[in-house]
Design a protein around this nucleic acid. Structure first.
Lengths: 136, 136
DNA sequence: TTCTTGACTTGGACTCTGTCCATCGTAGGA
DNA sequence: TCCTACGATGGACAGAGTCCAAGTCAAGAA
């Protein structure tokens, strides 16, 4: 739970009420919120918090590797606090719901050297798309 | 080459000079352009073409299944004319270059039923990220 | 505890990407 | 050649995100 807060403090992240609230919002429910949704929830606890501050805090959490940025559609990025367990995403094409999934296999190994064109491949993202039970 | 133009005409796509230019831009170099880049190239051939028209044409080409929309970053979508050969993408994290790649294996088969949460999974996108030779 | 200061927050302006709409123009069939 | 429904135009608008100058404050020093 507030492991996250402890880790951040331990890493010298200057703790302000705004940053605390953003971290708590992400640490709470295990969902994939957009920046605006994070802002909306943060405002419930700290009415004066500004959009810019939420964007700043999210950007820093991403840089620190505590949160993953997910662009499932061309719209707003979503923020995934489950950064310490490798996983992929399953997205509903209709309502946009995102679920973490754990496929078997290692997609990195599936890309032969001849298909790497000299790139240094560092990561792979897999996005499964379909319809969730409610939308099907 | 202008297979694309033929196919579109054959499918009853009303051919205007604007639509022709957009199709030709995509059909030419085999790169992954943003809508603005498509517009810039279209303007070279047809100076009066408007942004809205380019967006309309791209949207229709996507609906027709002739072009694939790719969101590799949270920024502008890119349009991939290589729609008739299944492939995945390799993206340079520094300069944004996108290359088509053909991994082995079938990632759809790697998602066990227990990890599908009742979703009807229809498609899977794999994005490899790293640094291209010029940026490394 | 109080002071100090550099880092953080604010809100408004701005950019970028994309969509919408009323009006005008034209491809292609009769 | 003429008609007309479909397409193009461009300007306004919207959503997501960034930037900046000015004000505020966390946390270390004294």
């Amino acid at each position: 739970m507030s492991d996250l807060l402890e880790r951040l403090r331990g890493r010298g992240w200057r703790m302000t009420s705004q940053r605390r609230v953003v971290a708590e919002v992400l640490d709470g429910d295990h969902v994939h919120l957009t920046a605006d949704e994070v802002h909306a929830r943060a405002v419930e606890r700290l009415p004066e918090i500004s959009r810019a501050t939420v964007y700043n805090a999210l950007g820093e959490l991403v840089s620190l590797g505590e949160v993953i940025e997910v662009s499932t559609d061309g719209r707003a990025k979503r923020y995934d606090p489950n950064a310490h367990h490798p996983h992929q995403h399953l997205v509903c094409s209709s309502c946009g719901t995102v679920r973490d999934v754990h496929p078997t296999g290692n997609p990195l190994a599936d890309l032969p050297a001849t298909e790497r064109f000299g790139f240094t491949v560092a990561a792979v993202e897999v996005t499964y798309r379909g319809l969730c039970p409610s939308c099907a």
